[in-house]
Amino acid sequence: MKIEEPNFNTNQIQQRVDDYITQFKEGYFSPLSLMARLSEETGELAREVNHYYGEKPKKSTEKEKTIEAELGDIIFVLSCFANSLDIDLSEAFDSSMQKIETRDKDRWTHKD
């Protein structure tokens, strides 16, 4: 039996996060708290990247985490942030890509 990998679009991710968060009376954290959490998770990602690709190996006493897990945590917090402010991540991403594709279209050397 083949187990299929999850494949979510941003709307599904945001809905799954919302379904989880809204089951609790506390609901979403404030934007300032979410920004702090995002910074914390980004720091954890930086630490993992440094362990795998940098000059700072893990201590033998440190838990094994992965870059994949830290990226997942960042996606969760970003989704919380967007949901709490009623922002559609798909629309936000599309807007950013349109800007980047226009502004930076000739910034780097194109492949043949």
Rank of each mutant, 00 (worst) to 15 (best):
D112I: 10
K56E: 06
F8R: 02
T22I: 01
L45F: 04
E64H: 07
L78C: 12
E26G: 01
E62T: 04
I3N: 07
A69C: 06
S96C: 08
K65R: 14
S95V: 04
N50H: 08
K2P: 07
L85Q: 14
I21D: 00
N7T: 03
I3E: 03
F81H: 05
S95W: 07
D106T: 05
N11E: 04
A69D: 04
L89R: 10
E26T: 04
I74N: 06
Q15W: 00
T66K: 08
T22E: 10
A69M: 11
F29S: 09
Y52N: 13
S84K: 13
S60H: 04
E5F: 09
L78E: 10
S95A: 14
I21T: 02
Q98M: 06
D19G: 00
A82C: 10
N9R: 11
F24D: 05
S30P: 13
G43N: 14
S95P: 03
L78I: 13
I13H: 00
Q98E: 13
A69T: 06
L89C: 07
I74M: 13
K56G: 06
P31W: 04
K105P: 02
F8D: 04
S60F: 06
F93H: 12
E40L: 07
K111Y: 12
L78Q: 12
E44R: 10
F93T: 15
Y53N: 05
F93A: 12
E55S: 15
Q15T: 07
D19I: 00
N50S: 15
L85F: 02
A69G: 15
E5I: 11
L85W: 15
G54K: 13
S39I: 10
L85E: 09
I13D: 00
S96W: 10
S84E: 13
T22Y: 03
T42A: 12
F76G: 03
S84C: 08
A46P: 03
Q23A: 13
F76D: 11
D19C: 00
R16A: 11
R47T: 09
E48H: 06
F8Q: 03
D106C: 08
F81A: 02
K25S: 13
S84I: 11
E26V: 09
K105T: 06
E68D: 15
S95G: 14
K59T: 14
I74W: 03
D19E: 04
S84A: 15
A46E: 11
T10K: 11
A36C: 05
T22L: 03
Q23R: 11
S30R: 06
Y53W: 13
K2Q: 09
H51N: 14
D94C: 06
S30W: 08
F29I: 02
I3T: 08
V17C: 02
K111G: 09
L38T: 06
L34E: 08
F76E: 07
I21W: 00
R16P: 06
I75Q: 05
R103S: 12
N11Q: 12
S39Q: 11
M97E: 09
E91A: 10
Y52L: 14
T66Y: 02
M1A: 08
L89A: 01
A92W: 01
T61H: 15
I87Y: 02
L45G: 01
I87W: 01
P31G: 05
A92P: 08
I21Y: 00
L89G: 05
Y28H: 03
E44L: 09
N9F: 00
M1D: 12
L78A: 15
R37K: 12
T66D: 07
M1W: 08
K63T: 12
W108G: 10
K2G: 04
